[in-house]
Design a protein around this nucleic acid. Structure first.
Lengths: 193, 193
DNA sequence: GCACTTTGGGACACTCATGTCCCACAAATG
DNA sequence: CATTTGTGGGACATGAGTGTCCCAAAGTGC
């Protein structure tokens, strides 16, 4: 028997609805109550408890699901193909499009609820690290700072764009352009000059 | 002459202790209970309530105090003196040193509890905006992006350094160097090339 | 149509943070 | 030394979020 027991279509649909609503809600309000999550998912509170008996289990599932989505998206970006320059642009887009997932995972230290998955996190970032390292070797990325630092900066600047977009200050397009430009050029007009 | 009525030394000392503890605590755990705050401040819970009858009042006071500290620090950085390059380095240091205050103000949207102070926030950032604008005019800062964007990026990258320092990944010195380098150069080895 | 599954809502107990009140004790002030 | 001022701790009420249980109704598959 498949470890994955069969799930009567409706069950898996309900589960997905809850997960999606939870991710969207917790991205902006990590302390949202279960009643709010249930409401956002369009299900009763008792139904939510039926799928996730305890809050921590819901959080766990949200983390797992988010990581799975992120892993898939990063893989789809095929960072090992093309030049580092192209890879950078692709990972920027990938991160930017997955904003709710990213927010829920890192924005609020929700990952800490599942210490056992922190290891998988490295595995998840591996393709990005590989890209950064390759770029550093080829003289494209700055080798004076660590690839871990570059990864953090990458995420931080993308976050700035997500935030600016969320509050309506910029359009998605403008944000994407600013992100790319800043990551490639820094704050200066003629860097290195 | 202080319109602030007399405060028996001990009262103001207790108040400061509470405020400092609250800022330090809320910087990392914005949902910390009042009991924890009182504990961290080394006072009884009833004493805390005596100074700040309601949680919202404590939050308000924390925001006000943080903004005052930040305003003073930014003023002390004298961003209108010297070249934009020097100004940038000084504001980086200023932000970096004030990490708890910055975290409590922006890291957790705590500012939203006092909408009336959002206006003062612009006033607070004014010297930074002035620096950025001056730098853009003089051709030092990138003029292809807005000064608001530059300000956000500035804070975001400093935050990366604060975070890396907090979790022990980097020393303060290393973080400061990486922040400066990244802001000036971006992620690339030879930007603009 | 019938049996089985899934659902929503209500009722309940429990925990925890909050806020209030009071009182005895310590510290500062005169 | 006596008074005022500040403090800590306990007792208590309240409200919100959580978790459990149950049952009638709606949905699903055969």
């Amino acid at each position: 028997m498949p470890s994955t027991t069969r799930e009567s279509g409706s069950r898996s649909r309900t589960r997905r609805a809850i997960l999606d609503a939870a991710i969207a809600l917790l991205a902006t309000r990590p302390q949202a109550s279960l009643a709010e999550v249930a409401d956002a998912a369009g299900v009763g509170r008792s139904t939510l408890h039926r799928y996730f008996p305890e809050r921590t289990e819901l959080l766990s599932a949200v983390v797992e699901d988010s990581m799975a989505q992120l892993t898939a998206a990063v893989a789809a970006a095929e960072l090992d193909r093309g030049t580092p320059a192209q890879g950078l642009r692709r990972i920027i887009h990938t991160y930017f499009e997955l904003s709710p997932v990213l927010l829920v995972l890192f924005g609020e230290h929700l990952i800490d609820t599942r210490k056992d998955l922190v290891g998988d996190l490295d595995e998840l970032d591996a393709p990005v690290f590989a890209l950064l390292e390759r770029g550093q070797r080829e003289g494209y990325f700055d080798a004076e700072v660590s690839k871990e630092w570059l990864n953090r900066v990458l995420w931080a600047v993308v976050y700035v764009g997500i935030d600016a977009t969320a509050e309506g200050t910029m359009t998605r397009h403008a944000a994407l352009e600013s992100i790319t430009r800043t990551l490639e050029h820094g704050m200066l007009a003629r860097p290195g000059a």
